[in-house]
């Protein structure tokens, strides 16, 4: 397979993974859609100019998610500098702004339920949130999630179990509070 053909096949795979990648970028950026888009754009730049190279030692999805996670961390570090320079603080997630229009009732209810789980997730520890997102949202196995997170399988499994119970409790608590 030639280089251009290989690049085109990766482009096709990235396009197929794009919605999932955006979801993971959201999870890594405190659910701020603008930051998530910036992170994902930077990831694509990295792939295009060869700074991030897929060496086929893992699946494309786990590799890509690892790159997204690292890039989101870099963005968080640089956002501190941006604040010092008087720029945007990335403190207020743009989630509510993006969906500002009037929605039908069912859509509004679905959005509300999505906001509930997002809020409950935000109350979990970072590692728990990451592993639950990767397993339940991205349909990865715990082993694949461990690979993305750069932790041992046992550690990921522990975060998964604890996070699952904590999240279920938080959802019940939110349900009880209305």
């Amino acid at each position: 397979m030639g280089i251009s053909e290989d690049a085109r096949s990766i482009e096709h795979e990235l396009a197929a993974l794009h919605p999932a990648s955006f979801g993971w970028a959201l999870a890594c950026s405190g659910r701020d859609a603008d930051v998530a888009e910036e992170v994902l754009q930077d990831v694509y730049f990295k792939v295009l100019d060869g700074r991030a190279r897929f060496d086929r030692r893992s699946s494309l999805k786990t590799w890509l998610f690892g790159v997204i996670r690292m890039t989101a961390r870099e963005h968080r570090r640089w956002s501190v500098l941006r604040v010092l320079r008087g720029g945007r603080a990335d403190a207020e997630p743009s989630e509510t702004i993006a969906d500002g229009g009037r929605a039908p009732d069912s859509e509004a209810a679905a959005r509300q339920r999505a906001e509930h789980i997002a809020r409950a997730l935000s109350r979990l520890a970072e590692r728990q949130r990451e592993v639950l997102h990767l397993v339940f949202y991205e349909d990865l196995s715990i082993a694949e999630a461990a690979e993305v997170m750069g932790v041992a399988l046992g550690t990921a499994r522990q975060h998964y179990e604890r996070g699952k119970h904590a999240l279920a409790a938080l959802i019940l608590e939110q349900g009880a509070n209305g």
Binding site: H18, P19, F22, G23, L26, A33, E37, L40, A98, D99, A110, R111, R113, A114, H116, I117, A118, L132, H133, F136, Y137, I171
Partner: peptide, 14 residues
Amino acid sequence: RFLELKRHDQRRAP
């Protein structure tokens, strides 16, 4: 719950 969140996110994916 995660499925609902996923659907919600996918609608606003760039």
